[in-house]
């Protein structure tokens, strides 16, 4: 059997039997990327909303910066964070290198500009009108901000899901700062690189399939939010 086909049949076996090695990797991936995206959301949505409500002229520089960072190559992010947290770096004393915590930091840095930037773009188109409608109906600061976010919820969910899609699939940053240590910092993407290198195609393909499945779920969600944005009251 050619390696790919053999890999696929073995992969299904591993997935269907909940192979512990595979499961641990999948679980860590979800944990790291999920936490990173959650934190990016907590910072990025308010930030993007704030920027989106400012007149475009006054946020030109920060917008350009955000757009640039949206395309930040993961290896570059990994490199910078590595230097900051290595033993020589300013945060070296924290001893976070080669831990899941630093992987979360790296993915946070990658997801934040995407979530903040896409939120900003969404708010910029309709946010001002929403804000003024809320204000004129007597809403205070908090209710106004909440209304703007709520009214833009499809686009914001889209931003969050796009952020998740990006970090869960990236390999450069987690490899550099996490180190791909078995059982501790090995996630799906780094495991695929490793297992492929070792010739363990069935494991690599199995992980690849899980990653694809997750990508499929993510994009289905994205599709639903975009459809929902068009016509449902949800």
């Amino acid at each position: 059997m050619p390696p790919l086909l053999e890999g696929i049949s073995e992969a299904f076996y591993l997935i269907l039997t909940f192979d512990p090695y595979l499961m641990r990797i999948v679980f860590l991936s979800l944990q790291v990327s999920g936490t990173a995206v959650l934190l990016s959301t907590l910072v990025g949505v308010p930030l993007g909303t704030f920027l989106g409500l400012k007149p475009a002229g006054r946020t030109r520089l920060i917008s350009k910066l955000l757009y640039t960072l949206m395309g930040l190559p993961p290896v570059v992010a990994g490199l910078v964070i590595y230097l900051l947290f290595s033993r020589m770096g300013p945060f070296g004393v924290l001893g976070l290198l080669w831990t899941p915590a630093i992987m979360i930091i790296a993915q946070f840095v990658l997801a934040l500009p995407i979530i903040a930037g896409l939120t900003m773009i969404a708010i910029r188109s309709r946010g001002k009108t929403i804000q003024e409608t809320a204000l004129t109906l007597g809403a205070g600061k908090l209710l106004t901000a909440w209304t703007v976010v709520r009214e833009s919820r499809f686009a914001i969910f889209g931003a969050i899901v796009t952020g998740l899609g990006r970090v869960i699939a990236e390999v450069g940053a987690v490899m550099m700062v996490g180190g791909n240590i078995a059982g501790r910092t090995r996630v799906m993407t780094t495991a695929i690189v490793l297992e492929t290198g070792k010739g363990n195609f069935e494991l690599a393909v199995g992980l690849g399939l899980v990653l694809l499945l997750i990508a499929f779920i993510i994009n289905s969600l994205l599709y639903r939010f975009q459809e929902g944005g068009k016509n449902s009251a949800w």
């Binding site: 929403i130 409608t133 919820r153």
Partner: peptide, 8 residues
């Protein structure tokens, strides 16, 4: 407003 915005 002339073109009022209704909330979703």
């Amino acid at each position: 407003f002339q073109k009022p915005l209704l909330f979703r």
